[in-house]
Amino acid sequence: MTDEPLLESTGSKQASANAAARQDDLRDLIERLTLEQPYAVLCTQGKGQPYGSLVALAVTDDLSSAVFATPMTTRKYRLLCDCDHVALVIDSRSQSVDDMMQIEAVTATGRAKQLSPGTEFEQMARLLVGRHPQLDVFVRSPSTAVFRVEIIRYFHVSRFQEVRQWIPTRG
């Protein structure tokens, strides 16, 4: 399996500058949505069959990674073990049920990696529990797996069909 190629930037310098400004703006939009929305739909697949699961999510400050947890007895855990290519859908539909044009959605694509006990596990577990303190016991349970998703890019959708993409830089 491979990721789809990045879209090429084209056009004049001015267009590039405008594009850069829009990208900054887009980053803020994505950040705001990930801060406002505590949950995401996790998309996994296995043998050609897609599968979606609602997960409690937290995203790092630089938006380059997301973290979620799942019991190991679940279908999504097995699918994640078989294939680490995932997507996460975060959206604002619950705030704009009556006005579709106000809904924003972000699809983040990336690779999921199960974290073993250690420094990275502690950092990400702390991030997740900080966002969802009620999940403290769940996240620390021996039968729970904590996954970090390394986000390759975001697709932002607004006004029904306006789609833009943004690639986070790590750091």
Partner: peptide, 28 residues
């Protein structure tokens, strides 16, 4: 069924996880 006494859940059907993997992580 699979009984998860840590989380309080019972999952029907064959196990979809690797018990050995869990034991390795649990045991450190």
């Amino acid at each position: 069924v699979t009984v998860d006494g840590y989380l309080g859940i019972v999952t029907m059907g064959p196990p979809e996880f690797n018990l050995e993997l869990l034991e390795r992580q649990d045991g450190g």
